[in-house]
């Protein structure tokens, strides 16, 4: 472990890399304040994939990497819908997933919101409507905010969350 701590001390904190624009700093500040005010310091998100290609999930995982480190803004991805304030929904709402998505949403305690992420839930991705796809998701659930992109990159997701926080 000593090797690791040596490296760790030398490397320092990389989260605020100068190459990431100033705007990102601003977003972070604004998100932090908004989460503090509206969600008493912690916004719990339950990510549900209803048939994506896994790129949106990879980008949400990237939000936890040392560059973005979403958790220090008070935003957490939680393990159960019962712990969540917000459902982050990706994918095309496949026929097979639709009942499970609805069930997960029903288990989130009110007040609750849905943020859709990526082009799939709104049927703006290249996928075409067919028998196996129930998208757009707006026909099944009420979506408060949509984060567009195929997939949206981590900064866009952070911006999207900020816009959502401004909305409510």
């Amino acid at each position: 472990m000593i090797k690791f701590w040596n490296k760790r001390v030398k490397l320092g904190v990389i989260t605020e890399k100068p190459e990431l624009e100033e705007s990102l700093k601003k977003i972070r500040k604004e998100i932090k304040e908004s989460v503090k005010k509206k969600f008493a310091g912690s916004l719990a998100i339950r990510m549900v994939d209803s048939g994506s290609c896994n790129a949106c999930e990879a980008e949400c995982n990237a939000l936890s990497n040392p560059y973005f480190d979403l958790e220090r803004l008070g935003i957490y991805f939680v393990a159960s819908p019962r712990h969540a304030d917000v459902m982050l929904l990706s994918g095309v709402m496949t026929f097979n997933m639709t009942p499970h998505v609805k069930e997960a949403y029903a288990q989130i305690p009110a007040p609750k919101w849905i943020i859709s992420i990526g082009d799939c839930p709104m049927m703006q991705a290249p996928f075409e409507k067919n028998y196996a796809i129930n998208a757009p998701v707006t026909e099944h659930l009420e979506v408060t905010h949509h984060i567009a992109g195929c997939p949206p990159n981590p900064v866009e997701i952070m911006e999207g969350i900020l816009e959502f926080l401004r909305k409510i």
Partner: peptide
């Protein structure tokens, strides 16, 4: 659970039109 009916979706398309869908079958 994630079955999107890709095989059926691509039928009747030209190869060029199928490309954006094929590259999004599995993001990784």
């Amino acid at each position: 659970y994630k079955n999107r009916g890709i095989e059926k979706m691509l039928e009747g398309k030209t190869l060029q039109d199928a490309k954006p869908i094929i590259e999004r079958i599995s993001g990784n």
